[in-house]
C-alpha cells in the first residue's frame, strides 16, 4: 500500500511517498530531500504530533488574552481537546513569558507555557 505525505518540517514541503507492506511496516520512502523527511513520515505513521498554539483568558491584565503554546509537539489527536481545555482557564495578571500554564498537559509530559507576558496595569 502507498501513502503520500507533505513534510511540514521545513518550508520546502517535500511530497513524500511511502510504501507499506501487509503488516503496515515501511518498505520504501521516496520524494524526500533529506533524512528529516523520512523521520517525519515515520512519525506520521506511528505517532503524529503537532505544536498547539492558542490563547488563554487573563483577568486583571492590560490584555484580555495571553498567547500560549505546547513547548514541544503533542500527539495530534490531543490538539482539539487541549484547545478546548485551555478555553476554560483564566489566569491572573501579571503572566510572565515562559510561565507554565498547564504542567504535563493531558498526560503527555509536555507543558503548556505562555509565549509572551501579560502585564497588570501600571506595567507590572
Amino acid at each position: 500500500m502507498e501513502r503520500k505525505f507533505v513534510c511540514i518540517r521545513c518550508p520546502q514541503g517535500c511530497e513524500i511517498t511511502t510504501t507499506l507492506n501487509g503488516n503496515g511496516a515501511i518498505t520504501e520512502i521516496t520524494g524526500n530531500s533529506c533524512r528529516i523527511g523520512a523521520d517525519f513520515v515515520k512519525a506520521e505513521l506511528t505517532d503524529a504530533r503537532r505544536t498547539l498554539t492558542t490563547t488563554v483568558r487573563v483577568s486583571g491584565g492590560t490584555r484580555p488574552l495571553c498567547p500560549v503554546w505546547t513547548e514541544k509537539p503533542v500527539p495530534k489527536d490531543k490538539v482539539l481537546d487541549l484547545a478546548a481545555q485551555l478555553r476554560t482557564i483564566t489566569l491572573n495578571a501579571p503572566v510572565s513569558a515562559g510561565q507554565i500554564i498547564i504542567k504535563n498537559a493531558a498526560g503527555t509530559g509536555i507543558n503548556i507555557v505562555a509565549s509572551a507576558p501579560v502585564m497588570a496595569p501600571g506595567g507590572k
Partner: peptide, 8 residues
C-alpha cells in the same frame, strides 16, 4: 461572542 465563550 468572546473568543473563549464557546460551548464545546
Amino acid at each position: 461572542r468572546g473568543t473563549k465563550e464557546c460551548a464545546q
